[in-house]
Amino acid sequence: MISRILDSKTKNTISRAVEKRSLAQDRRSAYKSTFFRVILQAALLLTMLILLVLLVSVFLNGTDHILSRLGDFLNGTMRSRSVDEKLGVHQALYGSLWIVIIVAVCAFPLGIGAAIYLEEYAPENRFTAFIEVNINNLAGVPSVVYGLLGLALLVNGQIFGLDRITGGRSTLSAGLTLAVLVLPIVVITASEAIKAVPNSLREAAYGVGATKWEVIRTQVLPYAAPGVLTGTLLSVSRAVGETAPLILVGAVSGRLGPNPGLFEMSALTDKFTALPLVITSWTQQSGRDVGFTAAAAAAIVVLLVVVLVVNSVAIGLRNRFEKKRG
């Protein structure tokens, strides 16, 4: 009897000890997971904070122009003095908008076409693999190098004499240079999107007698569309923000022609500027004339709005395609 009681007592202590230990372990891993959660949250918060500081400071600096004379600022031109009433970003806005349009018109069809060929038609051999590796490398080439290419081919017209079409240092040259710059990005993202199309969809379409082109047009492309759009969105944002290649193909920060309308086609082959350049130039001039700091901040706001508009259009389109895909 006594031994039995002792037995049950020891049992109890043993089981309690086990419980305690397992509880302690739980607590430790709970601490660990809380710790990591806090670190991750901090990372996110820091990122948001940096962005917030950036945005707030830019907006605060730019309020003078944005709030009180937005119309004049958008219609105005480059001036040598910051207090000039006609100071504004019209030429820069014109340049940036046309660069976006030229990039969209040239790089998207070309890049998406190349991606379709690579993924759907190209034979799987060393040559194709070589091309793919090179496209990946091209995406990593510094943008200045593309600027040099644009300078040689489009501005100076070496080899093909293309300067007769582009007008040398012009919006057209800049747009084409940036189109070449983003081309690898478009090809890579479109390829990835096409790769992600489930094979069962292709088989289903082939199974009811679709030809290769019909399978691509009616199944592969609609399914890949959201991914392709994400890539094009990325590339447009990149093109709008690029500065270095534009300097090389001859963007100027003064002595531009008269103010062109936003859709003045003939101005495409004239001397040009773009928003990132105006921002750079005004920031440089702020040492001489402090008023340019505010002007640069306002130009940054305009650039951000342009990027935002382009992005929301692309996101809207992407969501529509995704909804369709179901």
Binding site: S200, L201, E203, A204, G207, K324, G326
Partner: peptide, 13 residues
């Protein structure tokens, strides 16, 4: 000669 596959594979339409 039509085909029905192992996993149902309707088009997303």
């Amino acid at each position: 000669i039509g085909m029905v596959f192992q996993k149902p594979n309707p088009f997303p339409k």
